[in-house]
Simulated assay, not measured.
Amino acid sequence: MSIENLSILVVEDNEINMEVIEFMLQSEGAIVYKAKNGKEAVEQFDQIKDLDLILMDLRMPIMDGYEATIQIRKKDKKIPILAMSANAYMQDIQKCYKAV
């Protein structure tokens, strides 16, 4: 499956992680939009039309990925949102399911 021309919002507060993700996605032809916290992600979501996917870090300042997902889901139930995290504890996984 190709990601060429897919519009992807990457939500990540770590600059190095953001650069790596952006490079990988753009090298495959994706159109990348960036947000460094959940609040920016919700604002970007409201402004960008025709997003295909959101890659959402879970732990960020200002607004975390859980709350940002809840806010986005109030507006759109269908857009795919993939959680990104270094933590994969059962409580983190359960919290992700609750946010969706």
Rank of each mutant, 00 (worst) to 15 (best):
G65C: 07
I79N: 02
L53H: 03
A88Y: 14
D13P: 05
Q71C: 10
L53A: 04
I16L: 14
S2G: 10
R73P: 02
M18W: 07
N14C: 09
I48F: 07
D50V: 00
Y89W: 10
E28H: 12
I16Q: 12
I21N: 06
L51I: 01
E22H: 09
S2M: 07
I16T: 15
I79M: 04
D50R: 01
I81C: 00
P61G: 00
S2I: 01
G65P: 05
G65Y: 03
D64C: 01
K34I: 06
A86P: 04
G38M: 08
M60N: 03
A35G: 03
G65N: 07
Q26A: 09
I70A: 04
M1C: 12
S27V: 03
P80C: 02
P61Q: 02
P80M: 02
E40C: 00
K77C: 00
Q91N: 14
M1A: 15
E22F: 01
I79F: 08
V11F: 05
E40K: 00
E4M: 10
Y89N: 11
A88S: 15
G38I: 01
I70W: 00
V32M: 08
M63A: 00
I79W: 01
E4Y: 13
I81N: 05
Q47W: 02
L6E: 13
G29F: 06
G65L: 07
I81H: 08
M56N: 05
V10Q: 09
K74G: 04
K75W: 06
E67P: 03
K75T: 10
P80I: 03
A68I: 03
V100M: 14
K98I: 08
I62G: 00
M56W: 06
Q47P: 02
R59W: 07
A41G: 03
L25T: 10
D57S: 05
S7L: 00
A88R: 13
D13R: 03
M18D: 09
K77N: 10
I62P: 02
L51P: 08
I3N: 12
Y66Q: 04
K78F: 10
L58A: 01
E40D: 11
L82M: 15
T69N: 04
I79K: 07
E12N: 07
M18Y: 02
K78G: 00
V42P: 09
M63Q: 09
A99C: 09
K78C: 01
K78Q: 09
K49N: 08
E28Q: 15
K39Y: 03
E67H: 14
L58I: 12
Y89V: 06
R73H: 04
A30H: 11
